[in-house]
Structure formats: C-alpha cells, structure tokens
Nucleic acid binder design. Sequence first.
DNA 1: CCTGGGTTTGGGCAATCGCCCAAGGCGAAC
DNA 2: GTTCGCCTTGGGCGATTGCCCAAACCCAGG
Lengths: 197, 197
Amino acid sequence: MPTSAERGRHVRARLLQAAAELVAEQGWNAVSTRMVAERAGVAPGLVHYHFASLPALLTEAAVQVMEGVVDGAAHGLSQARTAAQALELMLADLDRYPGDDPASRLVSEAMLASGRDEGLRTAMAGLLERFRARLGDRLAAQGVPDPRGTAAVLAAALDGMMLHRSLDPELTSTAVAPVLGRLLQDGTPGTAQEGHP
Amino acid sequence: MPTSAERGRHVRARLLQAAAELVAEQGWNAVSTRMVAERAGVAPGLVHYHFASLPALLTEAAVQVMEGVVDGAAHGLSQARTAAQALELMLADLDRYPGDDPASRLVSEAMLASGRDEGLRTAMAGLLERFRARLGDRLAAQGVPDPRGTAAVLAAALDGMMLHRSLDPELTSTAVAPVLGRLLQDGTPGTAQEGHP
DNA sequence: CCTGGGTTTGGGCAATCGCCCAAGGCGAAC
DNA sequence: GTTCGCCTTGGGCGATTGCCCAAACCCAGG
C-alpha cells in the first residue's frame, strides 16, 4: 500500500514525463499547464502544487531526459576499442535520434529555450561538457590528434546532422561515415593550420 | 508622394521585419499578432489585413531572412580559390553568426518550427539544398574527395557549432579550423570505410 | 473516533490570445 | 465635388493562459 507521499512522487514523475513529451510535440512555449495535467491524467491545479512555475517544470523535465541521452551515448562509447569503432557507435546513435523523434526534438527545443532561461543554460552547458570530456578521452586513447578539439567539433557535427536530417532524410549514417572518418586520421602537416588555444 | 498601395507595401515590409526580430527574441510560438503590430508601429488589426494568418506571417518573414543568409554565405564562398580559403570563408561566417545573434536564432527557431509547418519545411529544405549545391561545387573544383557528401557534413557541422557556441563561447573559428581542415584532405585508403550511396 | 499533514480537486481571477468587422481616412479618377 | 477603392483604425468575440485558493479527500498516529 503506497503512502500518500509516495503517490505524490509518482504523480510528480508522470507530470515530468508528460511535460517532456509535450515539449517535443508542440514546442517549448506552446505547452500549457492544463495540457500537461490532462496528459498526466491529473487535475490542472496539481501542476503548481508540485512545481513552482511552468518554466521550472519544463526545465526539470528537459534536463532529466537529456541526462539520459548523454549518459546513454557516453556509455556506449566507452566500449569502443578503436577510433573507427567509436565513430561507428556515434553514428549508431545518430540513427537512434533521427532528428524528428521526441528525444531529438526535446534536445533542440531545450537548446533554443536555454537562450532565454539562465538555469536551463547552465544545466545544458554542463551536460555538453560532460559528453565532450568522455568523447575526448576516448579519442585520445586512440591517438587521434587534438582529441579535445576534435571531440568538440564532432559533438557539434552530430547535433547539426540531427537537425539537418529532418530536412533531408538521405543524410544517413552510412552517407556521412566516410566523410567523418577523415576527421579521425592523422593530420598531414602543411595542410591543416595550427592555432588551437 | 507615395500612393496608398505603396504605403501599404511599406507597412507590410515593416511587419515582416518586426516578426523576424520577435521570433529571434521570444521564440517562434511566443510571438503574437499584437506584439508584431506594436513593434511595427501600426494598429493590431493590420496584421490580418496584410497576412492570412500569424503562421503565414512568421513563415514568410523567416524565409526572407534565411534567403539572405544563405545567399550571403554562398556569394562569399564563390570567391575562394583554394579549399583552405573556402574553409576560412565559411569560418568567417561562423563568426558572423555566433549562435546567440538574431539571425542565428531565427534560423534555429525556423528549423524547429518546420517540423510542425509543412510549407516552412519545404521552403527550408530548398534553401539547404541550394547552399549544399554551391558549397559542393566549390569543393569539387578544389579536388576535395566526395564533395557532395563533404558539403552536407560541413553544412551540418556549421549549424551544429552555431548552436553549441551559445553554450560554449570558446568554440571559436580558430579553435575548430585545424580540425575541420582534416575534412578537406585526401582520404587515406583503408581508414575511411566506403558506402556513400 | 478524531486529528493532522500531505495530496488532490475544480473553479475563479485578470490577462492575453487569434481573428473578425463596422467604420473612417485618404489619394486617384472622373 | 463626388465617387471609388485601398488602407487603416480600434474595439469586440469566445477561447485560453498562468497562477491561486478554499474546500474536500485520504490515510497514518494518537
């Protein structure tokens, strides 16, 4: 028999999940408290009992989902034994998040909303930094030149391709794999200029 | 002395510009007809005289701005004489659109809104295709391998870095230049796998 | 049985929303 | 001077918004 406090925590979790779904479907600032309550199957007033405000609910919901995405990608990455394998695993993630699925949209919506919400911005910057660090460590272990800078560019490229994919479904992982493979090669002196701080 | 039709066109143009500014500042679906009218300095009712609906106004405003961005970048690109120069020009554009400026935000907002607006989606897909084609032609003329695929990845990487830059200001053009430079080198057989359709 | 604290309900508040429309302003054509 | 057509105004419509709150509810502890 669950105590009332436990039932309350369950309702809170359902509100968070409903909020994450709706942000992905309707857009960050098209989500209303009543929509969230309806999808969660509770009365409208409950939203402001469990959360201080609507932005606070959306921010907590987005951060929760994105932590799962980053940790999932980083965990898969830790099993790679070569640079090519790491790239292959990252592109598998690109297929898991095609750009028009709920998780991808949630991330994109949060990225834009972070420009107007300071708390969300710092939370997301922390997540990005964590992902870069793990990816950079993996690249360094494989002897990739400038692992830290390469990780930053690679992370950005993945995010960008996620966005572009919804405009061009042919931007598949097999299409971009040979191009990105060049990123992981040794730099040929003279062609690439120096200057990374 | 401007005729009334000419004054009408001028008001229409002001509404478009006000809409573009507000989408960048407040987000796609946080813009209201009354906000646009106020910034344009006209009565609220005028919005629905010049435009069929609010989404129609926002879509036309966004497409207009993005055409300018793409044409500007493509035009600058056409002056490059080497692959390294082309990369340099593209990174200069990255500095022009740091990710938290009005134009960058407008593009990002439109990219997300395109998932919920069919007309906007096709318009943006056309713009992306146009930019890729020009970039691909330029890369092909410099002997870059797989110019078409490289252009697609490069365009996505630029968009992604634009987004990441607002989370990490240190992601400057000088930081990523040496990394991206490797993309333009000849592929070393054996390291990059085949498979581009 | 009763009391107390956490949870839940549903309605109320003022504000804002997209869209509409009757009415007026105003230069061009006659 | 009168008529015509485009442009413009400001208010009104019903619906929806975030947030609030009095009251009911539920269950464990005394």
